[in-house]
Write a protein that binds this DNA or RNA. Structure first.
Lengths: 195, 195
DNA sequence: AAATAAGTAGACAGATCTGTCTGTATCATG
DNA sequence: CATGATACAGACAGATCTGTCTACTTATTT
């Protein structure tokens, strides 16, 4: 062993696998991309995959969890960069969306797409995607409370609708516009919620 | 031939096929459901399918178009049943959502799921689902104008975000609540839009 | 030097998928 | 009765999928 804690998740091959899996799954769909395609693209042997993950399903779940961590970290740092004003901090989420929608390879929300491809609520992939949506709600709840909303939970729920709706619209139309539509609506709702 | 216009779309077998295809595709996913499963469930022979549709992809497109017609008709009649008040007519859309979310076999939005399973914007299925979203927007635009919004297009865009967001949330959480959250937000935005 | 761990290539099984083809049956209409 | 349209069952090709297994290589550590 190279180091004491390289046991599993630090393996370079595992990282290559996860990076390529994310790229292909997001580009073409979780079910569409076959193991063989993935392995060829990642330059990894089949047995290496099955040494690190118990199945394709397991790989998808890990990819989704990793992406969830990245998204939450990205959101958190966008909020921090927005300064101290609670209103700006909350609206920073929508500016972050605009950047996301503008990226060349944007193809909708990886989690919504996972919910769609695995519509059964008991499916592990479905549940992993659902957990992400819960984490986002928790973050929004914090921002709504910070901003002094009378009913932070209600505001957080409404904001989540705007966010998911904007992502779907941006994916369907290929436009960045839904981000500013959502931002404006969010600003209005925030104002009303503070009374 | 039995009658003058039975040439294609009035065939009973074709109808069985479309009804079963809708049910299975919506329940399990467009890619998951295989032709053989579908045929067994519909009691139809394979060649009958390929006489009516050129491919599975073609079948999916027709199923989506048919469902789009049904949804738009359902929405239109819900709006009509809401009476003459422009505000009530607009909010009737969200009451209709609540009923949809409450149905036992609700599994999200068939069109969003189609966009997700076929993420490439040039794909025929993706485009068919996208056209539906456009039709909904057109209907919302009419309702927003009726209701006297200063900028009907802006309101219609915002409402669409709330609707799609609510559908995603309802699918992810299995709850009816997003319908009333969206309804409240819509009422607020409408009020602001009328000044 | 020997042992251990990690990765590789590639064959393989077994299932499943879409779409084609053949030949037969049914039935209304001319 | 004959014709033509519709549908049938089922075999079939050809591709693709996940997951398993074996045997070889490389490198690190003891």
């Amino acid at each position: 062993m190279a180091s004491g804690l390289s046991s599993a998740s630090a393996s370079p091959k595992r990282k290559q696998l996860l990076a390529t899996a994310w790229r292909l799954f997001y580009r073409d769909g979780y079910r569409t991309v076959g193991i063989d395609t993935l392995l060829a693209e990642a330059n990894v042997a089949k047995m290496t995959l099955y040494n690190h993950f118990s199945s394709k399903e397991d790989l998808i779940v890990v990819v989704i969890r990793k992406r969830s961590d990245e998204v939450l970290a990205g959101l958190a740092s966008a909020v921090e960069a927005a300064g101290r004003s609670p209103e700006r901090r909350l609206l920073a989420v929508f500016d972050w969306l605009k950047v996301l929608f503008g990226s060349a390879d944007f193809k909708g929300c990886a989690f919504i797409r996972a919910l769609s491809e695995f519509p059964e609520s008991t499916h592990p992939v479905h549940q992993a995607a659902w957990r992400h949506k819960q984490s986002v709600r928790k973050m929004l709840l914090g921002l709504a409370a910070e901003a002094g909303a009378k009913d932070p939970a209600a505001l957080a729920d409404a904001l989540r609708l705007l966010i998911d709706g904007a992502i779907v619209a941006a994916h369907a139309t290929g436009s960045v516009k839904p981000a500013s539509v959502a931002r404006k609506a969010a600003a209005s709702l925030l104002k009303l919620a503070r009374e």
